[in-house]
Nucleic acid binder design. Structure first.
Length: 529
DNA sequence: TGGCATCGCGCC
DNA sequence: AAAGGGCGCGATGCCA
């Protein structure tokens, strides 16, 4: 059974409608006496809940109500719109309902800071819109459209992702403000009382000034270029990798400044004050926020936490973190996708195994070669390495080369489960733009399939851990963090391995390609195994 | 003052 | 001239 649920605005009654699996209503609208009734329905029927959008689950979670399965109409509409070659067009519930009724969809309403639709009904003079009716109708149309089993799996995984994301935000990532502050103080000096530069940054900036013999704002690329030009160094950018090769006394303090200034600006004390409350960092995840199906986040830069700050991620007393990450996920995905199984030898370190075979044991070369093949590098050393791979692994390389050709020709490409890339835009046939689109579609097929492997893994893991004390607390493309009482950590490690294998099987059936997930049980994120 | 593009760099 | 994919975010610099 399925149950469509409209949580409505805060404090309003929750309305539901029971549906058959094909979306046909089984009964009329029910107004539930409270959220406890949702929990009763979950216990009694374990339905697939039909939500309008990821945000719908938040009110249930706030009341302590968890559900097992969902169908997220907005996320599924995004998949279907993209599959129709209309990626990026409106795919909210209102837009989907309009499309279904043969009307032109309006742009999706902007969301306010809480993720609610901003000013709902502000311009609506008629009676309150019946969102539940739209939900039921659009869901039924989506079920009819989801004829392909892979797309059905993708729709379920994407929807499960929305549940995971809300639960992660509700739990939060355990974060020690004291450890974070200590790290900052260690690297930057004491926190400046009135804002401004911390002592270490002020010192480095002064050294840069002294080296140039005049004040230069180290945060201004334009000023730096002028200052270096005056000193006889004509640079085109002030990127760290370029500065490193410049022989000038300002370079050393400037590089040190850049690194620490970034830490201060992006993840310094003001970040700490804004994003960490009660020992938890609560980023807002945006499921499907990236065209490839990767998640994005809104605020807090959760997917860019610098490695230097990982020591601030600490389990509660008596609890542990289980850190699980997939080793070399994308090349393995390419091997499974293309059927070129020689690309993924049965080894924990794929790069090392390939290096031994093809690159005289040079692991760095093997890694660069594979990444370059998936990103579309063609120049210099990377190009030569890719050429070597192309001769030895024609099927695997042919797969990404084919995706690149499709993209260059303006065609659509798809992930393994059927996520579709955005269409070419006017002007993409111009040679430079066409090659850029080729690099994008080349990477899309791999990155998007890797993202759905990770999504299925998350969904499986969530179901395996359901009802237990372990919580999923962080997810970053190919890495998952769980927070659990120390005594259940071994069970969580087992669940992670099981979920990874299930994800492999559900995507690729009996492929011999392995997707090893290394899990370590630690007190803090920066601890080695 | 606020919007916007660009740069640069953090993560994968 | 050649050019490696996807993001979020903050600072700068320009504009209205």
């Amino acid at each position: 059974m399925r149950i469509a649920l409209d949580p409505g605005p805060r404090e309003s009654p929750v309305r539901v409608r029971r549906l058959a699996d094909d979306g046909t209503p089984l009964a009329g609208t029910e107004v539930l006496p409270g959220l406890g009734a949702v929990a009763d329905l979950e216990r009694e029927h374990a339905p697939r809940w039909v939500f309008a959008r990821p945000r719908s689950y938040r009110r249930l979670l706030a009341a302590g109500v968890r559900v097992g399965r969902a169908h997220d109409v907005e996320l599924v509409e995004g998949l279907l719109v993209a599959a129709a070659g209309r990626s990026g067009e409106p795919h909210g519930l209102a837009a989907a309902a309009a499309r279904l009724a043969g009307r032109t969809p309006e742009p999706d309403p902007p969301l306010d800071a809480d993720g609610d639709e901003a000013s709902p009904g502000l311009f609506d003079t008629g009676p309150a819109h019946d969102e539940l009716a739209d939900l039921v109708a659009v869901h039924a149309a989506q079920v009819r459209a989801l004829t392909d089993p892979r797309m059905r799996l993708l729709a379920a995984a994407e929807s499960a992702g929305a549940l995971v994301a809300e639960e992660m935000t509700a739990h939060g990532l355990p974060w020690s403000a004291a450890a974070h502050d200590a790290l900052l103080t260690d690297l930057l000096g004491p926190r400046p009382v009135l804002g401004g530069r911390p002592p270490v940054l002020a010192t480095l900036a002064a050294e840069v000034d002294a080296a140039f013999g005049r004040p230069v704002n180290p945060d201004s690329p334009a000023e730096l270029l002028r200052a270096f030009a005056r000193a006889g160094h004509e640079l085109t950018t002030t990127r760290a990798w370029e500065l490193r090769h410049v022989a000038h006394p300002a370079v050393a303090p400037l590089l040190a400044y850049k690194e620490l200034a970034r830490l201060h600006a992006a993840h310094g004390w003001s970040w700490l004050a804004t994003w960490v409350r009660d020992g938890r960092f609560r980023p807002e995840y945006v499921v499907g926020g990236v065209v490839t199906g990767r998640w994005a986040t809104r605020g807090g830069g959760a997917l860019q936490i610098p490695r230097t700050l990982r020591g601030a991620v600490r389990a509660d007393p008596g609890w542990r973190l289980v850190v699980a990450d997939a080793a070399q996920l994308e090349p393995r995905v390419l091997a499974a996708l293309s059927g070129d199984h020689a690309l993924a030898p049965d080894a924990d370190d794929l790069y090392a195994a390939l290096a031994a075979r093809e690159f005289g044991g040079d692991r760095g070369q093997a890694k660069l070669a594979l990444l370059s093949a998936m990103y579309g590098a063609s120049a210099g050393q990377a190009g030569e390495l890719v050429a070597r791979l192309r001769r030895r692994y024609p099927a695997g390389m042919g797969y990404v080369d084919g995706a690149a050709r499709d993209g260059e020709a303006g065609r659509l490409v798809h992930s393994h489960l059927g996520r579709t890339c955005p269409p070419a835009r006017p002007g993409d046939e111009e040679p430079g733009r066409a090659r850029a689109r080729g690099r994008f579609t080349r990477n899309f097929v791999v990155q998007a399939t890797a993202a759905e492997w990770a999504l299925v893994l998350l969904a499986e893991l969530r179901l395996l851990l359901r009802g237990g004390p372990a919580e999923l607390v962080f997810f970053q493309h190919d890495e998952v963090l769980l927070h659990c009482p120390a005594e259940v950590a071994p069970d969580v490690v087992d669940a992670v391995a099981t979920a990874a294998d299930t994800a492999r099987r559900r995507l690729f059936g009996d492929t011999p390609v392995r997707f090893p997930l290394t899990a370590r049980v630690v007190g803090s994120y920066d601890e080695p195994a």
